[in-house]
Design a protein around this nucleic acid. Sequence first.
DNA 1: GCACTCTCGACCTAAGAAGTCGAGAAAGTC
DNA 2: GACTTTCTCGACTTCTTAGGTCGAGAGTGC
Lengths: 152, 152
Amino acid sequence: MRVSAKADYAVRAAVELAAAGEGEPVKGERLATSQDIPLQFLEHILLELKHQGLVRARRGAKGGYWLARPADEVTVADVVRAVEGPIANVQSMPPETIEYAGNAEALRDVWIAVRANIRSVLENVTLADLVASELPASVEALTAEPDSWAAR
Amino acid sequence: MRVSAKADYAVRAAVELAAAGEGEPVKGERLATSQDIPLQFLEHILLELKHQGLVRARRGAKGGYWLARPADEVTVADVVRAVEGPIANVQSMPPETIEYAGNAEALRDVWIAVRANIRSVLENVTLADLVASELPASVEALTAEPDSWAAR
DNA sequence: GCACTCTCGACCTAAGAAGTCGAGAAAGTC
DNA sequence: GACTTTCTCGACTTCTTAGGTCGAGAGTGC
């Protein structure tokens, strides 16, 4: 139930690409410094994003990375899945495939509900939303709750 | 963004204890077999639950484990936190303490929203709910969505 | 040709996940 | 008091992942 550094870095780098817009490609080094991410590690992450078709790249002078799709068509969920795989797996298995014995039967539905609720945030926030700092109303509603900010 | 075997086991064992009710303590071995959990691993988990005050235990003949509180006062979140620590940390840090640079500023709110949404499920389902297979309406609503069951 | 920048496999260390082992301590029974 | 049962708990193992570094190579633009 935690977000890895890799996923966090991936989203931040993607946001930075989104902010750069359609112009020139952005160099890995600029991404690394502007978001304070170790360069070599970031390159691996960008490569994964490229393999998943989210990002494109060109080498050489004037080279760099850019988004393969418009920023408002890439969700945070896309980026997280690209580097971490399926969201909210239980014991590395998708929850809908798990069979629980006897008393624990209903537990599967709990994990399903958790996954659905995570998705409802991550699949509805796009990179463009992040750049603009304007999250969808349903997400804003959650952050508006003071209780959401309580450590626990 | 995944649920560990440990957390899964912990909840299942706790549900089994809840189902056993107030009578005699339940032996570790019975929990292990009824939920198909490696016994020795389970004992460590039960010990953690005991240290966190969720479970009590007695040794010897007639010994075993039982819930420290009524089953309808223990939530799934309590059990998960007992063995995994804080839910939905980012890079091992609570999301509200993270400062993102520039373009990624709004990302913190996304993680906060994710955490809030996870909590809204886990903190509202009790062990008693699971034993009865009757989840709160807000959770049932999520599992009723066909889309929640789609692998992705 | 040369500088620049991505590509990508190899490697590394530390930590965590998942589990096993075995000695010991408390509790009940006879 | 001896004996059995069952929890207690530290030590240990194995495997994977997290997080990161290094260095050679390949494509690009000038």
